[in-house]
Design a protein around this nucleic acid. Sequence first.
RNA 1: GGUCACGUGGCCGAGUGGCUAGGCAGAGGUCUGCAAAACCUCGUACAGCGGUUCGACUCCGCUCGUGACCUCCA
Length: 493
Amino acid sequence: MSTAKKGPFFLTNTLTRRKEEFVPLRPPHVGLYVCGPTVYSDVHLGNVRSFLTFDVLYRWLTFVGYKVRYVRNITDVGHLTGDVDEGEDKIARRARLEQLEPMEIVQKYTNGFHDVMRLFNILPPSIEPTATGHLIEQIAMVQRILASGFGYEANGSVYFDVPGFATKHPYGELSGRKIDELLANTRDTEGMEEKRSPLDFAIWKKADPSHLMKWPSPWGEGFPGWHLECSAMSTKYLGGTFDIHGGGMDLKFPHHECEVAQSVAADGHAPVRYWMHGNMLTVNGRKMAKSEGNGFTPEELLTGDHKLLEKGYSAMTVRFFMLQCHYASTLDFSNAAMQASEKGLERLEKAMALLPGLKPGDADGADIEALEHRCHAAMNDDLNTPVLIAELFEAVRLINSVNDSKLKLTAGALERLRSLMQAMVRDVLGFRAEAGAGGDDRMLDALVQEFIHLRAEAKARKDFATGDAIRDRLGAIGIALKDSKEGTTWERT
RNA sequence: GGUCACGUGGCCGAGUGGCUAGGCAGAGGUCUGCAAAACCUCGUACAGCGGUUCGACUCCGCUCGUGACCUCCA
C-alpha cells in the first residue's frame, strides 16, 4: 500500500560487512534461500533461532509487497561427521544406531522438524527441496565444475581444487579468510591422501559396498558432497544469481564459502547478492550445539523437564524472547530472561485483547501515523525487531490509556492502530494469540460472569468479606478478577 | 596460534559523536472499600587506561575479559 511501507529496506550483507539497501534483481520478485536442517536428530532451540530469523525476514518482505520465493532445503544425505574424509554420513550413522532404514530416519526427523516449525509459528517455505531428490542436478554441477578445470577425480571421488580456484578467482571473501592463512593453519593431513590440498573439499564421494546411501554416477557409486546440494538446488529454483541467502553464522565457513566457489566454478558468476547470517543462541555464554550437549528440545522447553529449565515456557514466549534481541547479536538463554519475556508478552497480548473493544473519542491524543512510520523504520533498518517491540509497547501504553479513558482517539485513529497492531504483532513478528486470556471459552466465561454478579451484589450491600472470598477462591483456581470503573473483568493467571 | 566479534544500569537487551530505547525486577504516586491491573514519576548505565574532538558510551590505540570461526553444528 503506502510507499512508507516500501521505503528503503537495509540489511547487513555479510559480503561487504555493512548495511546495504536491498534492491531485488527482478522486482517485485525476491529469491530467498535458507539452509535448512540436516535431518538426523531433533532440532534444538538454537536451530529454532536461525529459522525464526529468516521467518521474520520472509514475513517482512512479504508484508512490504514482494513476491517471495522462499526455498529452504532438507539435507538428507552427504553430511558427514567429523573429518571430511574419515567421517560417516550422519544419517547413515543414525540409521545404524536406531536400526532403521536411512529414509526412515530422514522422514522421522523431517516430521519432527515440521512439528517444531508449526509450534513456533514459523511459516513453511515456498519450496522445500531435498538433497536426495536432486542427485541429477548435483551430478550435473559436478560435471560443470570438472569442465571448468577446478575439480579433479581421485579414486571414484571428485574434489574441488581450492588453491587452483584461488589463483583465478577470489576465495574467502565471504568469511574473510585468506588462502595463505588457511594453508598455514591446516591440521595434519592424515587420511586425506586423495586430496591434493587440505583445503579441497569433496563434491562427490565414492561409497564403499557397505554404504546404504549411494547412487550411480559417472565416477561410480557414491553420494554428493555436503556443500553441493545448496548450490544445485538454489540454482535450480532461484536461478544462477539470486537475491538473499541466509543461514547461521556457523555456516559461513566453510559451507557458504564453498557454495560461492562452486557456483563461480560451475557457472562463472557469484550466486548470491546479499548474504545474511544469524548469530548464535548461547547457554551460560556458550553456543548451544548438539556437540556441546547443552541444547534442549522444544518438548523439554514446554514441560520444563530439563536441568537448565526452572519451569516450562510457551513457544510464543521463546519467540518473544528471541525477537527482543537483534538477529546479528548473540543471545544468551537464561531463566530470568525467559520469565521477563513471559511477562512482557503477556502485557502485549492483554493490550491486543483490549483492542477490539476500545471506544472511539472525539479527539486525537496520539499520532498513530508517526508510530506506524517508526515501526516500519525499525524493520527497514536491518530487521530491528527489538526496536519494533519497543514501539509496540508505546502502542500498548496508548491502548491501556484509551481503555482507562485517560486518552482519546478518533474512530479513524483507532482503526489505524488496530490494523497496525494486527500487522506488526501477528503478521510480521508472528506472535500467535494463545488461548485462555479471558473469554475464549464461552461456558467458562458465562460461569465466571455469574460469580462476578454475585460478588457485585455482595459489594453493593457492603459485604466485602463475601466479595473478597469470591475473588480469593477464584484466584486460587487460576482466575483473577479485576475491578474498574467500567465493571469487573477476569483473566487466567 | 590465526581471523573476527563482543563487553551497556539489579537482570535481559537496543542505539547514538551532544537530545528518555524497550521489557522484567525495584521505589514513590494516581485510581480503588481493599487488592490486582492500568496510568504517571524515579534510577544520573555504557569493562579499564590513554588519544582525537568544543564535546565520546558512541571514533582511534592499548590492556583486561568473554565468545565465535579456523573440524560437523542454525
